[in-house]
């Protein structure tokens, strides 16, 4: 009589894998990316150097746009609506590609208004825009 050798193997219990450390790590990753990310889309406007300091000079006479503190525009000294200014700038740019437009903001004009005017001039077709100080907007404290 032969007796078959019986090996009894103890059944291993299938232990549940702990998910808590995994969840902790995922939450930490989520926090890291949430705090380390920026959802705002930034851009930048290039400010050309002032005239006479090495910037490119236009062959044509520069067109001067004045921006008042209240946001009103003047074209070569005369008050002008934004629509008329856009037409005039587009006509000038059509004649001279490198037409220089000089924007002269009042000292108390806000940066946002300057940015709006720069956008407006670029949309009108002006490729060469520079900022200059308004010569009539003199502050005695500077002297």
């Amino acid at each position: 009589m032969s007796q078959a050798l019986q090996i009894t193997r103890a059944r291993r219990k299938n232990p549940m894998m702990g998910l808590t450390p995994l969840i902790d790590m995922i939450f930490l990753l989520l926090l890291f990316f949430l705090l380390g990310s920026d959802f705002v889309s930034y851009g930048q406007s290039r400010l050309a150097p002032p005239r006479g300091t090495g910037g490119s000079e236009s062959a044509s006479q520069p067109a001067i746009v004045t921006l008042s503190e209240a946001g009103k525009l003047h074209w070569n000294g005369a008050p002008v609506s934004s629509e008329k200014l856009a037409q005039d700038v587009a006509a000038l740019v059509a004649r001279h590609d490198d037409q220089l437009v000089v924007l002269m903001p009042a000292g108390a004009a806000e940066v946002q208004k300057i940015s709006d005017t720069l956008d407006f001039l670029v949309e009108a077709g002006a490729a060469s825009i520079t900022l200059e100080r308004d010569v009539f907007d003199i502050d005695l404290a500077d002297f």
């Binding site: 930048q44 921006l67 900022l131």
Partner: peptide
């Protein structure tokens, strides 16, 4: 305001900086 912005640009140009990028 525009005044310090223009003063900054003039000072940088005087120092020799060629390009200023306004964010």
């Amino acid at each position: 305001h525009a005044k310090p912005l223009l003063a900054f640009r003039a000072a940088m140009a005087k120092a020799g900086v060629g390009e200023i990028r306004l964010k």
